[in-house]
Amino acid sequence: MAMSFPVGLADFFRDVAIDSMTFELPDAVELLTLGSGEVLTAEHGSRLWRGSVTLATRRHAVLEDIMARLRVLQRPGASFLVSPRHHERVGAGAATLNTIRNGRELRLSGLAAGVSVPRGAYLSFTYGSSPTRYALHQLAEAMVADSAGLTGWGEVVPPLKAGTTTGTAVQLAAPVLKAVLVPKSVRAGQLRSVLGEGATFDWIQTLR
């Protein structure tokens, strides 16, 4: 059966044998130095998560299984879900986006009393339609749920996108984003007598 997009975690990103990876959020800032010595900064565009993956050394048949899927994902319009595989699972699987303010802060509800969501934790949710958009954010400060399951305010990076609404289900245990392959980044690596090694690819988040 032909692959449907975005390809789910179990069908690609969680299934492939990864040796090492990066998971980054580059800035989107322009810098201007004035004659007076003053330095001005301004945002340009959206901050998007991106990363590089090096596949583990595997027998040829296993590596080609992965490469075949990568070659499908090189098509225009193809996309797949990515998770921060290195993150520690929070002691709660899901919550609700209760309140937002300033485009940078939020409160969660629906958690068990006393549950702590640490600084550095990731969370994700979907918003919009045609297409459905996937948001992934990282907490810049810890939050703890009160007796009613409502947390205090916590700032997230990157800022919340237009179209984010309260009442949305939030995933804490298995946060995801939607990504596409960076063009010309797929490399098959070295094929030795029995094993293949050094295969790599780069990905970048897409909000469409």
Rank of each mutant, 00 (worst) to 15 (best):
V170W: 08
V186H: 02
A145K: 03
M143T: 01
T168D: 07
L139Q: 05
T166V: 07
S130G: 13
Q171P: 05
T165V: 11
T132A: 15
H137R: 14
M143V: 06
L150A: 13
S124V: 04
T166I: 04
T164V: 11
A162L: 15
M143Y: 05
G167H: 00
W153A: 09
M143E: 10
D146V: 03
T168C: 06
T151G: 09
P159E: 06
A140C: 10
L177C: 11
L181P: 02
L136Y: 13
D146K: 01
A121P: 07
F125R: 09
G163K: 02
K161F: 14
E141A: 11
Y122V: 07
G128A: 04
L139C: 07
Q138M: 14
T164A: 13
R133C: 13
T132C: 13
P159W: 05
V182D: 01
A174T: 10
L123V: 06
L177Q: 08
L136I: 04
H137D: 10
G152S: 10
T164D: 08
V156Y: 14
V157S: 15
L136V: 08
L150M: 12
G167N: 01
P175E: 09
L123F: 14
H137K: 15
L123A: 13
P175I: 03
V176G: 13
Y122F: 15
Y122W: 15
G152P: 07
G149D: 00
F125G: 09
Q171E: 15
A148P: 04
A173E: 06
A145L: 03
V176E: 15
T126E: 15
K161H: 15
D146F: 04
V182L: 04
L177R: 07
V170T: 03
Q138K: 13
A174R: 03
K178A: 08
A140S: 11
L172H: 10
T168M: 09
V180N: 06
K184S: 10
T151W: 03
A174W: 04
A135L: 05
V170G: 01
K178L: 01
Q138L: 05
L172W: 00
P175G: 06
R133Y: 08
L150V: 14
P159D: 12
D146I: 06
G154L: 00
V156H: 11
G152K: 12
P159C: 11
L160A: 01
V157R: 15
P183S: 02
V157Y: 09
G152C: 09
T166H: 06
T126F: 08
